[in-house]
Design a protein around this nucleic acid. Structure first.
Length: 814
RNA sequence: GCCCGAAUGGCGAAAUCGGCAGACGCAACGGACUUAAAAUCCGUUUCUCCGUAAGGAGAGUGUCGGUUCAAGUCCGACUUCGGGCACCA
């Protein structure tokens, strides 16, 4: 009988068809089973999968299938973000409507996901860009507005004068427009909507330490800590000598305030604008412009004297007021005191402009350096600091804060680096902001009963400045809900990060039209057990969604304070040039080609086998043959043994094969439970099949049955098509994923003889084979008597023998 | 500058709690089968040295030092690469 050939196309197309038409395939048998919620992110709205995505989804897919086989009720949705702007640009390029582009893209993605056999829950379909879903973005906006968490202010945006339109940050390349590479981007002030994420800054930071430390990767947490950027310090008022107006400065080193030799304001600072004369204001404008063009990094310190002085409230000293280009308006109070002796930046600035340098901190066991050549930034002991002299920095800060508070010119203060979330986008394809501008009443929210404010379908994409919505009178003209006068709608739409901040809650109740989701449903599924996504989302998405969760909790919608208990950030797939595989770099590998050639199972096995999933994977296609050959070996072994009646069964082969089987079950199970190192799980499966080939001739029928059954179950999370097909050919009842994950027997896992390495002074000299359970004393005796060991201990004193049970013997000689 | 992460054969990698470094796979080489090739099956493969051979000795996980009977793993200092933040007061 000719051996059965593994024809991946025939098998995979067959099962793809069956799975596609079985909406209940991925529902647990038992609705009361414990839940396990896996969410995965699309890294890009590319509309086509590449092998980078395949790797990402293979990870979550294997996990979901495993959890399911462990008896959990698994929800495994996929999320996407940022369909707004890319969709609009792509649609303009193809002369399509963004809505049509989005719908066709999602259909295409869905087709590809099916071809790969991924077990996704597609409940939401296109909801994030349709009124069904974005109605609730608007609802959230109104709630934020009610609670004072949404506000409007003028803010700077990137503006391309050539396109006459607003650009997102990622469309600005080297300070120029992405479509006009020689046109510098300008900054314009536009009225924008903001959400007060800063209100939650403290809690967002605290929860990093309190709750997340075990389930989230350290690198993401440290990026978030960095981004939130809390620093403790003091605010102190320096009064302008001539006007008495207070300049509030922020410092983390109030203990050095007796060394402050000037006050420096950001060029934009309102007080600076008042104090400066015309020439000074021109200089300030020049500094602001120069900073924008240069960008951060290599800025040379520059500034100018305002001609005015301020009073140091601690010493009563009169110090000059300067403006400086390195002082940022949107951090702290936009004003600093310069202590050149103890801060490097102040030192640079003051040496440039000949401002005096006065040290007021000495090292704990050193002298005060009267003429410093460079700034000394460490904590130490205060000196020349009036009544606060001679104190350790820490204590000085405490006492000085207290003093300031008593006298009413300052206090201890905390500043965050994180800024409020600007959610306005001057784009069409996004959620319309549900606000109305009334000439009489000002800004008025759309009443909740009028939601959703729908996007008009007929829109011309003029690319001119305001949102395309502003050009649609039917949309813009509206009556004021308060006074009934003619009014205008807000023409901006929301950042699509708003969509992605809470979509995973909507998944647990996607058809709800009374609320964003039912609280009981959220209570069942949240927090998410496992969130999977690229590290690219570490900052924006993963902070916004934490913020949203806390807001929803405060709205009484949920009880959890964090969206996800565990976060897994998979490594990138690196293209042939060693950089991340991405469409814009043109180094992507298309899964369609690979799937056609090797099959989806092989592709998935290949990307999981390459290395541990949290590490970046270098793309070396030539090694895809290994996983493919492995699957062929499995295929042949199973198909030829389904009905075979063994001629010469022997117990030794049975025992060896069963031992390997049980060892493999344990290994794969532990990998799933602890660390998801699928590469080692797959290596274990390869070892198993190698052992089975060795023992094949001697296996009895009963053992074969057990082995075939478990082998296919073990394979199922990694190669679902083949597993399902083999399961069916074996005549078992499917689907294979409804079967219980196999267990192992600790007795069967044990080897009956052990190979114990014997070292002399830590150097390996031989290995001895001993029966399991040999006593330590016997091990010691056998090891010392070994002919290979003898020459190394002869004539020497055995000082000590270390025996690690079942592991090793080390003989220490002198 | 600050904060994270990484460094192991020709290549991707493994070694999970301080206990045999290189599992598993790729590539390469050799053998079986074949008229031949492919496929398949079975071997060999960290480096250096000794030996005709069976075999043996030494070195070895980016560098230098330390702790330990024992270090890829722990400690101290450094180098290189990758990532994040960056005049954040």
């Amino acid at each position: 009988m000719p051996e059965s050939i593994y024809d991946h196309n025939q098998i995979e197309l067959k099962w793809e068809e069956r799975w596609k038409n079985d909406p209940d395939l991925y529902r647990a048998n038992d609705p009361t089973a414990k839940k396990y919620y896996v969410v995965e992110m699309f890294p890009y709205p590319s509309g086509r999968l590449h092998m980078g995505h395949v790797r990402n989804y293979s990870i979550g897919d294997a996990l979901a299938r495993y959890m399911w086989m462990r008896g959990f009720n698994v929800k495994h949705p996929i999320g996407w973000d940022a369909f707004g702007l890319p969709a609009e640009n792509a649609a303009i390029k193809r002369n399509m409507h963004p809505r049509d582009w989005t719908i066709s893209n999602i259909a295409e993605m869905k087709r590809q996901m099916h071809r790969m056999g991924f077990a996704y829950d597609w409940n939401l379909e296109i909801a994030t860009c349709e009124p069904d879903y974005y109605k609730w973005n608007q609802w959230f906006f109104l709630k934020m507005f009610e609670r004072g968490l949404a506000y409007r202010k003028k803010a700077m945006v990137n503006w391309c004068p050539e396109c006459a339109t607003v650009l997102a940050n990622e469309q600005v390349i080297d300070g120029c427009c992405w479509r006009h590479e020689t046109t510098p981007v300008e900054q314009r002030a536009l009225e924008q909507w903001f959400w007060k994420i800063t209100e939650y800054a403290d809690e967002l930071l605290r929860d990093i330490d309190d709750k997340l430390q075990h389930g989230w990767p350290e690198r993401v947490l440290s990026m978030q800590r960095n981004w939130i950027g809390r620093s403790e310090g003091s605010e102190v008022d320096f009064k302008v000598e001539s006007t008495g107006e207070a300049i509030r400065v922020f410092t983390t080193r109030v203990d050095t305030i007796y060394g402050a030799t000037c006050v420096i304001l950001a060029p934009e600072h309102p007080i600076a604008q008042k104090l400066l004369d015309d020439a000074g204001r021109a200089k300030a404008k020049q500094l602001i412009d120069a900073r924008k063009q240069q960008g951060p990094g290599d800025l040379i310190k520059d500034g100018t004297f305002t001609g005015q002085y301020a009073i140091n409230p601690y010493s009563g000293e009169k110090v000059p007021i300067w403006i400086g280009n390195f002082v940022l308006m949107d951090y702290g109070t936009g004003a600093i005191m310069a202590v050149p002796a103890h801060d490097e930046r102040d030192f640079d600035f003051c040496t440039t402009f000949g401002i005096p340098i006065r040290p007021v901190i000495r090292p704990v066991d050193g002298e005060l350096d009267e003429n410093p050549k460079a700034a000394f930034c460490e904590y130490g002991i205060t000196a020349n600091s009036g009544e606060f002299s001679g104190l350790p920095s820490e204590e000085a800060r405490r006492k000085m804060n207290q003093f300031a508070e008593e006298k009413g010119f300052g206090k201890a203060a905390i500043t965050f680096r994180i800024k409020d979330w600007g959610i306005s986008r001057q784009r069409y394809w996004g959620t319309p902001i549900p606000m109305i501008h009334c000439p009489k009443c000002g800004v008025v929210p759309v009443p909740e009963k009028d939601l959703p404010v729908e996007l008009p379908y007929n829109v011309k994409f003029t690319g001119k400045g305001r949102s395309p919505l502003a050009e649609v009178p039917e949309f813009m003209n509206v009556k004021c809900p308060t006074c009934g006068a003619d009014a205008q709608r807000e023409s901006d739409t929301m950042d699509t990060f708003v969509d992605s901040s809470w979509y995973f809650y909507r998944y647990c109740d996607p058809k709800n039209n009374a609320l964003p989701f039912d609280s009981a449903a959220a209570e069942t599924w949240f927090p998410i057990d496992q969130y999977i996504g690229g590290v690219t989302h570490a900052i924006l998405h993963l902070i916004y969604s934490r913020f949203f969760t806390k807001v929803m909790r405060d709205l009484g919608m949920i009880t959890n304070s964090e969206p996800a208990a565990n976060l897994f950030t998979q490594g990138m797939v690196l293209g042939s040039d060693g950089s991340a595989m991405s469409k814009s770099k043109g180094n992507v590998v298309d899964p369609e080609d690979m799937v056609g050639k090797y099959g989806a199972d092989t592709c998935r096995l290949f990307v999981l086998f390459a290395n541990a999933p949290e590490k970046d994977m270098p793309w070396i296609e030539s090694s895809v043959g290994g996983p493919r050959r492995f699957l062929e070996r499995v295929w042949r072994f199973v198909t030829r043994n389904i009905d075979r009646q063994p001629e010469n069964p022997n117990p030794d082969a049975d025992r060896k094969a069963l031992r390997k089987l049980h060892q493999t079950i344990r290994k794969v199970t532990e990998d799933f439970d602890n660390r998801w190192h699928f590469n080692t799980s797959i290596a274990a499966l390869m070892e198993l099949i190698n052992e089975l080939y060795d023992q094949e001739a001697g296996l009895s029928r009963g053992v074969l049955d057990r082995i075939l059954w478990d082998l296919v179950l073990l394979l199922a999370p990694f190669a679902p098509f083949m597993a399902e097909e083999l399961w069916e050919q074996m005549g078992r009842e499917g689907p294979v994923f409804r079967r219980q994950w196999p267990g192992w027997d600790d007795e069967l896992v044990k080897e009956d003889t052990l190979e114990i390495p014997v070292q002399v002074n830590g150097k390996l000299r031989t290995r001895i084979a001993v029966p399991l359970g040999t006593s330590q004393a016997d091990l010691e005796k056998i090891a010392q008597a070994d002919p290979k060991v003898q020459p190394f201990i002869e004539g020497k004193t055995v000082a000590k023998v270390i025996v690690v049970p079942e592991k090793l013997v080390n003989i220490v000689v002198r």
